[in-house]
Simulated assay, not measured.
Amino acid sequence: MDAELFPRSRTEIAPGAVHVPDWLDGARQRELLAACREWARPPAGLRTVRTPGGGTMTARQVCLGQHWYPYAYARTVVDGDGAPVKPFPDWLGELGRRAVTDALGPAPATGAAYDIALINFYDADARMGMHRDSDEKSGAPVVSLSLGDTCVFRFGNTETRARPYTDVELRSGDLFVFGGPSRLAYHGVPRVHPGTAPPELGLTGRLNITLRVSGL
């Protein structure tokens, strides 16, 4: 009820880590969802990520620009069908640059262009353990866009997967950017709230699009 009465506001969760609610309007969410559905098609489509220890991630993933696998990047889907990774579109890079400017100001957005996207699909049972985005050579901010079901996004510290951390509710259309002193903070998704996506979006589950600068 409080969320209906009082608009959610931009919040700095930690130095360099900012949550901007409702950053994507409904039309842009639908456009981005349509693009994600195309990117998810094979070849080099949505896949289950296998970890070196033999386990699997519960969130499924597709990559653009460079293919991420634990714990490196490649030009082909080396842990899947072997196809060349799909290209990273210029318009998505511009969206990332605008996201950084809106969240952190113009200075952090003046570096190299965004050239990698990792797109994770969460069904009702999917989770993401605490981890750091540390396989890039660039320290440019990470841009995270949410579509579909609401999730609990746990944003921690740079030293350990344990406390202190802050749980943030990310809804469809929300933006989260982390850079500077928070660029290598541990973060994860302990919970997804099924059935909370906007009905007009037409998505069952949650999509998270993270944009990065490879520095490669």
Rank of each mutant, 00 (worst) to 15 (best):
D2I: 14
E4H: 09
E4A: 13
L5T: 03
P7V: 09
E12T: 14
I13A: 03
P15F: 09
V18W: 04
H19N: 10
V20N: 04
P21H: 11
D22T: 06
D25T: 02
A27G: 07
E31G: 00
L32H: 07
L32T: 08
L33A: 11
C36F: 00
C36P: 00
E38G: 09
W39Q: 13
R41A: 15
G45V: 04
R47T: 05
R47P: 03
R47H: 05
R47C: 00
R50A: 11
G54S: 13
T56Y: 08
T56M: 13
M57H: 06
T58E: 10
R60E: 14
Q61I: 14
C63L: 02
C63H: 10
L64E: 04
G65M: 01
W68S: 02
Y69F: 13
Y71A: 12
Y73A: 00
V77L: 10
V78G: 10
G80K: 06
A83S: 15
P84E: 12
V85L: 10
P87S: 14
L92M: 14
L92N: 11
G93M: 10
G96S: 07
D102R: 06
A103T: 11
L104G: 12
P106L: 06
A107W: 01
A109S: 14
T110I: 04
G111W: 04
G111R: 03
G111M: 01
A112L: 15
A113P: 00
I119P: 05
N120A: 10
N120D: 08
F121D: 07
A124V: 00
A124N: 01
D125P: 04
A126G: 06
R127I: 08
M128N: 02
G129P: 01
D133T: 04
S134D: 15
S138A: 15
V142S: 06
V143L: 08
S144T: 11
L145Y: 03
S146W: 03
S146A: 12
L147I: 05
L147H: 01
D149K: 01
D149Y: 05
T150P: 00
C151Q: 02
V152F: 01
V152S: 10
G156V: 00
N157E: 08
E159T: 11
T160C: 04
A162E: 15
A162D: 15
Y165P: 01
Y165F: 15
T166D: 12
D167C: 14
L170I: 13
L170N: 05
S172I: 07
F176A: 06
G180V: 09
P181G: 11
R183V: 05
A185V: 12
A185C: 14
Y186E: 09
Y186K: 07
H187V: 11
P190L: 05
H193G: 00
G195N: 07
A197V: 09
P199F: 02
T204W: 01
T204Q: 15
I209P: 01
I209M: 10
T210E: 00
T210Y: 05
L211H: 08
R212P: 08
V213L: 12
V213W: 02
S214A: 12
G215R: 05
